[in-house]
């Protein structure tokens, strides 16, 4: 396994994914370590997706849904937040820093926001170092 930083971002198609597209249009660059996985709604995310991503070598994982009160599926973003909170507890139970996983809310037209989120997660990994699981997986 290489020691490159890899961050998985599960992005809601309506909010965060659009924000990332718009950042592209505006040519606001961000770290290439982020890997965007498009989901129809942040509510699609299960705690398993977050845990599996760490097992597969992610240094950090974030879930990004629409702003609270503006979910295209009414409350999918709230369900996502619960999943993220749950994942944080499970991770800290096994000794992985809870800061490695985070929930964000992004609106489709906030071009600046997506790069900011990526910057935030990258700086967390910079501080914490690469995932301790990286050593044990091949």
């Amino acid at each position: 396994m290489s020691d490159r930083m890899r961050i998985v971002g599960f992005c809601c198609s309506h909010g965060a994914y659009s924000s990332a597209d718009l950042a592209g249009v505006m040519r606001i660059s961000y770290s290439p370590s982020v890997m965007i996985i498009r989901v129809p709604c942040a509510g699609r995310i299960d705690v398993l997706h977050i845990l599996r991503a760490f097992r597969d070598g992610a240094d950090a994982v974030f879930v990004a849904g629409c702003l609270e009160g503006n979910c295209h599926f009414e409350y999918g973003n709230f369900e996502a937040r619960k999943m993220v909170e749950h994942a944080k507890r499970l991770l800290s139970d096994i000794g992985i820093e809870a800061e490695r996983v985070e929930m964000f809310n992004v609106a489709s037209n906030q071009a600046w926001r997506f790069p900011e989120i990526v910057g935030e997660m990258v700086s967390r990994v910079d501080k914490l170092g690469l995932s301790p699981l990286k050593k044990v997986i091949k």
């Binding site: 998985v8 997706h49 991503a53 992610a58």
Partner: peptide, 16 residues
Amino acid sequence: GYTDAQLFSQASASLR
């Protein structure tokens, strides 16, 4: 379009 298997596999491939 978004089964667990599909998302796991996509995430895994994007990491490895």
